[in-house]
Write a protein that binds this DNA or RNA. Structure first.
Lengths: 156, 156
DNA sequence: TCATATGTATCATTAAGAGTTACGTGATTC
DNA sequence: GAATCACGTAACTCTTAATGATACATATGA
């Protein structure tokens, strides 16, 4: 597919959850981001392992934030969804016996690694709360009457 | 597929071509990078348009460097192979009416755009000649008797 | 005129994310 | 304790983009 959407989608979900009363089911979350409940559980599993969200089974179950958005960085979310490869370009994974190819791969790897480190540092410096505030500004400018646009069915 | 290999492969090819006497056919180049001659022509077309290489048809034809490696930056090569998307992560391409999603996408796009600009600046600052010198160092340390490891059949 | 090599359209293959179905397990409600 | 709800997860299919392969046209040189 085009590219990995998990980080973007999880940020979207986390901010909605922060404004969501009580628990949200996988089905409700799936409707927020226009996808399937199984896809949601797959993504959320990584966040649960890191203590960002909790899940409960059975009646009244679902997902809930386990910490304030101010304590979650974009880096945390990136790692939680499985730290997918950042770049779409780069050398082949396997090693060649050709010294030219080795030199090219090494130089490209080094350049990309440096860029990756810088980008991850940026992610570390941005909290989900900051992004939520971006949304608040947009909302204030829009003049809507609800704190966010709720796509799915009403909360439990 | 895993990721876009064109930039890496083209760098590999350009350095080989710089050490190659006369013209190299698509078939010979394809063997250098273990692929198909048509794939090579597809990649090289972009380089020809930018004046990096020239091509000749018929007997004795093939590809030839049109300028010294010192005049070609990694950025030039990146653009020549069609500037493929740099990142494997990011928001969905289409726009949503959800203000939360808009805020997330905008913040992510901004962060990635900044990272992209920095990486492209890095690419602009590195010439293919520098990478060729990386190879020369590796070669000197390896103690081989030929200036590079030629994978294909002997040159014309 | 024939062999050679590029130019290109068209289709097949491949890899990874995303989507879907099916079924198991635990928790709540009745 | 039976039914229902919701997560947990395995095992598929679908989609997309890069890559690989085939076929054929065109141009060039021997």
């Amino acid at each position: 597919m085009a590219r990995d959407l998990r980080m973007s989608r999880m940020l979207h979900v986390l901010i909605h959850m922060d404004r969501h009363v009580g628990r949200a089911t996988s089905e409700q979350i799936a409707q927020m981001i226009s996808t399937n409940a199984v896809v949601v559980r797959r993504m959320m599993a990584g966040l649960r392992e890191r203590g960002i969200v909790t899940s409960e089974k059975g009646h009244g179950g679902g997902w809930q934030l386990a910490c304030p958005l101010a304590r979650i960085s974009l880096r945390d979310v990136y790692e939680a969804v499985g730290h997918p490869p950042l770049f779409n370009i780069g050398p082949q994974a396997d090693h060649s016996s050709c010294l030219v190819e080795q030199a090219v791969d090494a130089r490209l790897d080094a350049t990309l690694s440096e860029a990756e480190a810088r980008l991850l540092a940026q992610f570390s410096a941005i909290t989900v709360e900051e992004v939520a505030q971006d949304f608040e500004r947009r909302f204030a400018e829009s003049g809507h009457s609800v704190p966010f646009q709720w796509h799915g069915s009403t909360a439990q």
